[in-house]
Design a protein around this nucleic acid. Structure first.
Ligand code: SF4
Ligand code: SF4
Lengths: 144, 144
DNA sequence: TTTATTTAAGATAAAATTGTCTTAAATAAA
DNA sequence: TTTATTTAAGACAATTTTATCTTAAATAAA
């Protein structure tokens, strides 16, 4: 569904958020231990999320990554996905056609449109907070 | 949504089917002209679809590709997709986790499951015949 | 100030996907 | 039978994605 980069980004954010709820900053090594991802690649991805303001970071000893608690419910899944993969998942035709006549669509068109709308809806309505709380309460386990 | 290989495969099949409805066999060169795809790559993909019996072929002069008319409504989109990309799109978790506890799913789980079920449903219920008829009646244009 | 620790950034490498090229096999017509 | 045409198959190449490695910059503690 998503690229590896986006997958790692989502998992990293969920872990960082879950720890930020406990007032803990986390180092990248701790993150990848908990989400089972390659450390340098993950660092690059989380770095990109820092750049767009989804995550905060502090360099040096006692540094690490964290997420502002009061912003956790404002940051949605779609922000992470688009920050890493862009919005190409939501645009264009499922068959890869450049443009199609909306007035004479193929048999799959409206189903495609609906499925993508549902996906977008889900990403738009699910916040980091919700997912982090799921992790905190042991509902979802990032490792496996 | 799908890989390039699958995209080309779908478009090629639709074109071949639309011509088979007119009792025409088509050469690979004609196919790629109409679907705007790289010829050798497309040939390889269509060849794979021949192997699994979705398309028929005849070598030599006056040869080409065609699809049995009476099978067009039996061949569904899902057959093409799985023949090329396998069934990985339908399996596993959207977050890339290996396995998750069904009894304690994350907040996105059921939405993910539903979206994928819808996608699978669409591919299962849409036949080559429907898409080829759409093309024949000028409803969908493969080139753009 | 010096040192150790950590993120930041960018070069490099490996793997997967996409795409090309060459040769072989099949087959129909001359 | 010979030739031309077409698919079949597999080697090769380019591109994109994924992953690693190295060095720089920031910063906190000693
Ligand atoms: S009509 Fe069909 S082919 Fe055209 S954009 Fe919609 S889904 Fe794609
Ligand atoms: S519960 Fe969430 S993380 Fe687990 S398999 Fe379902 S969607 Fe994936």
């Amino acid at each position: 569904m998503f690229s590896k980069a986006t997958e790692y980004g989502i998992k990293a954010i969920i872990y960082i958020a879950s720890q930020s709820m406990l007032e803990r900053r986390v180092k990248i090594g701790e993150v990848v231990e908990h989400i089972d991802s390659p450390v340098a690649f993950t660092a690059k991805i989380v770095g990109a999320l820092v750049k767009v303001g989804i995550v905060q970071s502090i360099t040096g000893p006692y540094g690490g990554f964290y997420i502002d608690r009061h912003r956790m419910d404002q940051i949605k899944m779609i922000d992470i996905v688009t920050a890493i993969d862009g919005d190409s998942i939501f645009n264009g035709c499922g068959l890869g056609l450049k443009e199609c006549d909306d007035e004479q669509p193929c048999p799959m068109h409206y189903k495609f449109v609906q499925i993508r709308a549902d996906l977008k809806d889900m990403l738009n309505s699910t916040s980091i907070l919700e997912l982090a709380e799921g992790l905190k309460s042991g509902k979802s386990i990032l490792m496996r």
